[in-house]
Nucleic acid binder design. Structure first.
Length: 408
RNA sequence: GGGGAGAUUCCCGAGUGGUCAAAGGGGGCAGACUGUAAAUCUGUUGGCUAUGCCUUCGAAGGUUCAAAUCCUUCUCUCCCCA
């Protein structure tokens, strides 16, 4: 098999391929142009979006040409694949703004050079489509019977599917065709929920252009206990540091299940596969492997400096040395400590509890720690005497949530 | 266009005049056990100036001493027929 494909497979990115042998042969012959689509439906990419882009880098590094297609046009109607209900419509302005944010984040991760990797936006050819022409030229190639047999639509037959969403597949197929015409794109890669759309695009190109193109999907990445990877209590694991801090991002990886460590090392880092396997080998310190995983992924997304800081902050919090100033920090008024800071307010102000009732529960259940000692009395105020000489104080909620307070 | 069913707290879902901040499950949080893992067990899960007060059962009105529960209008969803 083609070495680039071998890498993809070895690292766990290969779920299905329309013609593995044919694709392999094609890739042996020379650079293949491929694309990944991604609809800008929110203000930031999250880690779940990134799986195909890790693959893009592997393929790109093997000499192939990757296109990141922003779905500025398709986001206007919403993809029903893998969803159980209609997504809310987003304003055109918001989509355009999101697309630009996505493009910047992707540029940072992929490094678009305009030759071996670049971005495109399907708004450029979808926004001004003529309905009649589109039906005539594209729509006539689609069979409703066939579309209804696709798993992506089947699931929605129960809950309802609007006509608009039903057309998503046509637009995505048209994207593939357009990229084939403009850039000679011969391969579309994406999550396994895109299989139906990818195959449809492939068939459209065969009918219209008589050309053979390929599709390849990645497994839907689940944690070993069956949850969607990258989902936290607070929502997804975002790339935007303002939405998910590098520290929290780091902690997510530091806390993955033992059973997921190897899989995540292979998929979300660029460490050689042999090294990944060695790190996660039985008998090796699994926590060291998690720490490495966390550092590597954080460094890829936020840079090595932020990764170092997150690691250092985590070590300080969990008692492994490190630098306390890298811990999550909140600045509070010194005067309030001098007046006696009500504990409940303190935990709320530090961001460790969303409401005072939650803070109260925390204290009552023995999960509130001030300077490493459990605080038992919800009524007792925290005085300035507990601040260390630097005017600092470490609070902890439960076992893992830390906040360093700096009194000013 | 006609007929029917429904909208409950983060999610699913019970509740059909006071005993309802609302059963049960899921999820979350906390405790125990641990390795910042998993599994398991226990507790907890609207807010607050707190033995009480305020907000919440699709929206707005109304009946009543008292409404998630009854009436009116509206919005939305689903199903059947055309």
């Amino acid at each position: 098999m083609n070495p680039a494909l071998e890498t993809i497979k070895e690292r766990g990115f290969l779920q299905q391929c329309t013609d593995l042998e044919g694709l392999s042969k094609r890739m042996d012959e020379g650079p293949v142009t491929f694309y990944i689509g991604c609809d800008p439906t929110g203000p930031s990419l999250h880690i779940g979006h990134m799986v195909p882009f890790f693959a893009l880098r592997h393929l790109r590094d093997a000499g192939h040409v990757g296109i990141a297609l922003l779905g500025g046009g398709t986001a206007r109607i919403g993809d029903p694949s893998g969803k159980t209900e209609t997504r809310k419509m987003i304003s055109y302005e918001a989509i355009d703004a999101n697309a630009e944010l996505f493009r910047k984040q992707l540029d940072r991760f992929v490094g678009f050079d305009g030759k071996t990797s670049f971005s495109a936006n399907n708004k450029d050819w979808l926004a001004d489509l003529n309905y009649i022409d589109f039906l005539r030229d594209i729509g006539s190639h689609f069979s409703v019977n066939r579309m209804l047999s696709f798993e992506a639509y089947k699931a929605r037959m129960e809950t309802g599917l609007s006509f608009v969403e039903f057309n998503y597949q046509l637009l995505q197929s048209y994207d593939f065709l357009e990229l084939y015409r403009r850039h000679g794109c011969r391969l579309q890669i994406g999550g396994d929920d895109q299989w139906g759309n990818i195959v449809a695009g492939m068939e459209l190109i065969r009918r219209v252009e008589g050309a053979e193109v390929f599709g390849l999907t990645f497994p839907l990445v689940m944690t070993h206990d069956g949850k969607k990877m990258g989902k936290t209590e607070k929502g997804a694991l975002f790339l935007d540091p303002a939405m998910t801090t590098p520290y929290d991002f780091f902690q997510y990886w530091r806390n993955v299940s033992d059973a997921d460590v190897l899989k995540f090392l292979l998929m979300f880092t660029f460490l050689p596969a042999a090294e990944c396997r060695a790190l996660a080998a039985p008998g090796r310190d699994i926590n060291a492997a998690k720490e490495r995983l966390a550092w590597e992924v954080t460094a890829l997304i936020h840079g090595t400096e932020e990764a170092d800081k997150a690691l250092s902050g985590a070590k300080a919090a969990f008692g492994g040395g490190g630098d306390r100033s890298s811990m999550p920090t909140a600045e509070l008024s010194r005067a309030r400590f001098e007046a006696g800071y009500p504990v409940l307010d303190l935990f709320v102000d530090a961001g460790l509890a969303p409401t005072k009732s939650e803070a109260r529960r925390l204290v009552q259940q023995g999960g509130a720690f001030v300077a490493d000692a459990a605080w038992k009395d919800e009524k007792a105020p925290v005085g300035a005497g507990l601040l260390d000489p630097d005017g600092e104080l470490v609070l902890r909620a439960g076992k893992k949530r830390y906040c360093r307070i700096v009194a000013k």
